[in-house]
């Protein structure tokens, strides 16, 4: 098991020739994705609050960073994003600061932490590495995820699926969704910002009659694959991961056009203490190597330069995601009250 981790980290940073996909990416990569070779060595100690589980893939990235920087010590605390965000705010109030960095699974938690005035501003050259729509002054989006409509390939074909999310309730399809899931709530917030409160409330009510509720979006995708429902609402990577473990899975992805239904959201990282070390650590996450590793292994969408998107997902420019300021997605309270009034939560 140790050996496997070791091999992963070797493939990630060391021997580029070992891993064909990395090699391919580094040849075709654009000029603005920086390689780890160009980065300064990290020296010192940081504590990272990591707001997600992840089956060892983030672990591989963090291990590879540690391995490359022998005089750098990284302490990691994992937990549900909301719990860690609450803990960070509580720590700040009590004057006991333990976290230097907070890597959150969705932008809502980032909003909570920066709303409490805890997010430090970051160097401009770091921010400018990201695609323009992902540039913010006090947090760095690390990877993206897109809202998709996974559908059962035995029960329907892509052309039966409306490309407007607002028409979904009238499509006659059975639908699975996970309203308690953070990414779903961010999506409803985006709909609120794009289509307005009334249209969103109306959509939720119409959907509620047609939809089966699941605890999480992994559950939604599994239910679609099993044929319990025709189609679901979920982040893209659950479908791609399911298919990687089960290549003949009866599920495929459809996208809506230019509405909240294909919102691109991001996981992001915040520096909670000033200093170069934290910023330099973030630089590692935006390198060619890490971004393409997270794309190929975790099926997350790279947000830097021209790093290729995960296999099985069209590139971002062929999809037409809506233009939404991601930090505004932190405004969850009105969304929850809409969802509650519609009887969805």
């Amino acid at each position: 098991m140790q050996r496997r981790t070791f091999l992963h980290s070797m493939a990630l940073f060391g021997a580029l020739g070992v891993c064909p996909s990395l090699l391919a990416n580094s040849v075709s990569g654009s000029a603005n994705a920086i390689s780890v070779e160009q980065l300064p060595e990290l020296k010192g100690e940081l504590t990272l609050y990591l707001g997600r589980g992840e089956g060892g893939l983030y672990e591989d990235v963090l291990n590879a960073i540690k391995k490359r920087n022998p005089s750098f010590k990284l302490n990691i605390r994992r937990g549900p994003t909301a719990a860690l965000a609450n803990a960070i705010v509580a720590e700040a109030k009590a004057g006991v600061r333990r976290a230097d960095l907070f890597w959150a699974v969705d932008s809502g938690a980032i909003g909570l932490v920066s709303g409490a005035g805890l997010a430090q501003s970051l160097p401009k050259d770091l921010i400018s590495q990201l695609k323009p729509e992902f540039q913010f002054s006090n947090w760095i989006p690390v990877t993206g995820r897109i809202r998709t409509l996974p559908y059962n390939t035995e029960r329907l074909s892509a052309d039966k699926i409306p490309d407007n999310i607002m028409e979904l309730p009238e499509s006659g399809l059975s639908i699975g969704w996970a309203p308690a899931y953070a990414s779903f709530q961010s999506f409803v917030t985006a709909m609120r910002l794009i289509a307005g409160e009334n249209a969103t409330a109306d959509w939720l009510k119409r959907m509620n009659d047609k939809a089966t509720r699941y605890a999480g979006e992994l559950g939604v995708v599994m239910a679609v694959e099993r044929g319990e429902v025709d189609l679901g609402l979920a982040n893209h990577y659950y479908t791609l991961r399911l298919k990687s473990g089960k290549p003949n899975a009866r599920v495929n992805l459809a996208f809506t056009q230019n509405d909240a239904g294909c919102l691109v959201n991001a996981s992001g990282i915040v520096a909670l203490k000033e200093g170069d070390l934290a910023a330099n650590f973030i630089r590692y996450l935006l390198t060619q190597e890490v971004q393409s590793y997270l794309a190929s292994e975790a099926y997350e969408i790279p947000l830097v330069g021209n790093v290729a998107p995960p296999k099985g997902l069209p590139t971002l420019d062929t999809i037409s995601p809506p233009k939404v300021d991601l930090t505004k997605l932190a405004d969850l309270r009105p969304t929850l009250s809409l969802m509650r009034k519609a009887g969805v939560l």
Binding site: T47, R52, G53, E54, G55, G56, L57, N75, I76, R77, R78, G79, P80, A83, A87, R98, L218, Y237, Y238, R241, L242, G245, A298
Partner: peptide
Amino acid sequence: LLLGPTGFETLATYLWRVYEAGY
């Protein structure tokens, strides 16, 4: 998850990590 020492992984926290990610 919330109270253990930083970096303290147990069987339960590892289970959570892999389950949450869908692996």
